[in-house]
Design a protein around this nucleic acid. Structure first.
Lengths: 258, 258
DNA sequence: CCTGATAAG
DNA sequence: CTTAGCAGG
C-alpha cells in the first residue's frame, strides 16, 4: 500500500499544471493534499469526484485559504476532522481516516508567520502540534499503526534545509518549533524518510518561489510522514519526489506491507 | 481658477504611470482625487507632500480601499470630511474645502455593486447621494458658490454612455440611480460639462479595462463637476481630458472667473 | 521575492 | 481586466 502526501498550493492552479495526470500515474492507494484553497464546489467534477477514488474534503471556512483533502482507493470506515477546538477546526487542517486497522492522518500544520510578517502565529502553530499529538497518543501507545502525513511547516535539523545558519530566527526553523518535532520523535514517532534514507543530504520538499531556488535546490524538508511504532513494523519504503512540478512543494510518501 | 477631478484607481499605481508629470503640467489650482487606495504614509514624500501644494487626505479605514485627497495651491480656511454618519465617514469618500468664498467638494460616490456582484450596495449609494445633498443644501440655497466634483458612479442620461440599452439593469445606469442625479439638477445644481458643451456625444470619463473599450471609446460619463447657482455665475469652462492615461478614469474639470 | 486566491471596481 | 491586500514559507 502506497500513501502519498502533497501540499498543492491551490488545487485549482495545480490542476492546470497536470495534477490529474500525476494522480493517474502516482500508483498510490491513499493521497493526502494540503493547501487545497478551494471548496469542493469550486473544483471541476473530475477533481472533486475523480473516477476510482473515494474523496473526503475538509475546507477552511475562509475562502481560498488552507484546506485538506484525502483520496483513497478503499472507502474509509470513518473520517474525523475535529481536534475538539473550533480555532483549529475552522481552518480545515486535519483529517483522520480509518482504513481497516490503519489510521492515516492528513494534516496541514500552521505557518508560524502572522499578519505583519511577525511571529505571532507560532503559539497557534505549537498548540496545533500538541492537539494532534494528544489526539493520537492513545492509538500510538496502544500499538496501533498510525501515520501522520502532511506539511509540518518545520525543518527538523540543520540537514533538513539548505541554509540553516541564515534561518535560525525564521519561523520554520526556530528552536521552539524544532523542539516540538523532537518531542514527537522522543515519544516514539519515527520520521520515515530519515529511517529509510539516513542522513542523505539535499533532500527537500519545499523551495521558495524566488527565482532559481528550486533549480539550485535551495530548499527545506518540511513535509513528513511520521509513523507510530505499530506502523513502523510494516513500513517498506519512504520517498520524496522532488521533480514533480505543479506546486512549490513536492509529493512525498511511504509504502507499507499491507 | 482651474479645478480638476480625477479617479486615479490607486495613486501608487498611477504614480508609476506619470502622475507627478501630469500634476506638474495640469495648470490646476485645485485637484481632487478619488480612489487613492493608500494612506499618506504609504506614498512617496513627493506624492504625499508635493512641492507647491497644500494636501488634505481622507483615507478609508479599510486598507487599499477608496479614499479621497485634495491638492490646492492656496491653503483652505477649513476642510470638513464628516457627513455625520460613521457608515460613510469610515470609507473616506468626502472632503469639503473652503477656499475664500468658494466651497469645493471632492466626493467618491459609492459603487452600487455588492459583494456577490449583486446590487446590494445601491441603498448605501443612494443614501450617500442624499447625505451630500442635504449637507450642501443650506449653502446652495443661500446662493454661495459651491462645486461638487468627483466620481458619481452614475451615468445621467442615455447620451452619457456608449451602450445605454445594454445597461438599464446595471448599477450605474439604473432608474433609481439616474433619478438621484435628476433630483440634484431639478433642485438647482448644474452639470457643468453639459452646460458648456450641450449634447456632445461620445464624451466619457471611464472605460472598462476589458480589452479595446477605451480605444473604441466604449465608455461612460460618470465623473462630474456640479455647480450651485452661485458657482454657475462664475463658471467659464468645463472639460474632459480623455487622453490622459494612468487610470481607467480620465481627469475632468472646470475653470472659474476667480 | 513571487505566486494563489479574494475583494472591489 | 486591473489594483491592492492577504497569506504562504
Amino acid at each position: 500500500m502506497r500513501i502519498v502526501s502533497w501540499n498543492v498550493n491551490g488545487l485549482r492552479a495545480c490542476a492546470g499544471k497536470g495534477f490529474a495526470d500525476w494522480l493517474a500515474g502516482a500508483e498510490a492507494d491513499v493521497v493526502g493534499l494540503q493547501e487545497v484553497r478551494a471548496r469542493p464546489d469550486q473544483l471541476d467534477a473530475a477533481l472533486a469526484r475523480p473516477e476510482g477514488w473515494h474523496v473526503h474534503a475538509n475546507p477552511a471556512e475562509r475562502p481560498g485559504y488552507s484546506g485538506v483533502t484525502l483520496f483513497s482507493r478503499q472507502p474509509p470506515s470513518a473520517v474525523h476532522t475535529s481536534l475538539g477546538d473550533a480555532a483549529f477546526d475552522v481552518e480545515g487542517r486535519y483529517q483522520e481516516a480509518h482504513l481497516g486497522d490503519l489510521v492515516v492522518v492528513n494534516a496541514y500544520f500552521p505557518n508560524g508567520n502572522g499578519k505583519n510578517r511577525d511571529l505571532s502565529r507560532i503559539p497557534y502553530k505549537l498548540d496545533f502540534y500538541r492537539a494532534v499529538f494528544d489526539r493520537l497518543e492513545p492509538a500510538r501507545a496502544a500499538g496501533r499503526p498510525v501515520l501522520v502525513m502532511g506539511d509540518f511547516n518545520t525543518a527538523h535539523r540543520p540537514i533538513d534545509l539548505a541554509r540553516p545558519k541564515d534561518n535560525e530566527k525564521t519561523s520554520g526553523f526556530r528552536p521552539e518549533e524544532r523542539e516540538e518535532l523532537d518531542r514527537w520523535l522522543r515519544s516514539g514517532w519515527t520520521d520515515t524518510f530519515r529511517h529509510v534514507h539516513g542522513d542523505t543530504e539535499g533532500a527537500y520538499t519545499w523551495w521558495s518561489q524566488r527565482g532559481g531556488c528550486r533549480e539550485r535546490n535551495v530548499g527545506w524538508r518540511i513535509d513528513y510522514v511520521l509513523a507510530s511504532p505499530g506502523a513502523l513494523e510494516i513500513l517498506t519504503d519512504a520517498f520524496i519526489h522532488p521533480h514533480v512540478a505543479g506546486s512549490d512543494h513536492c509529493p512525498i510518501g511511504v509504502a507499507l506491507n499491507l
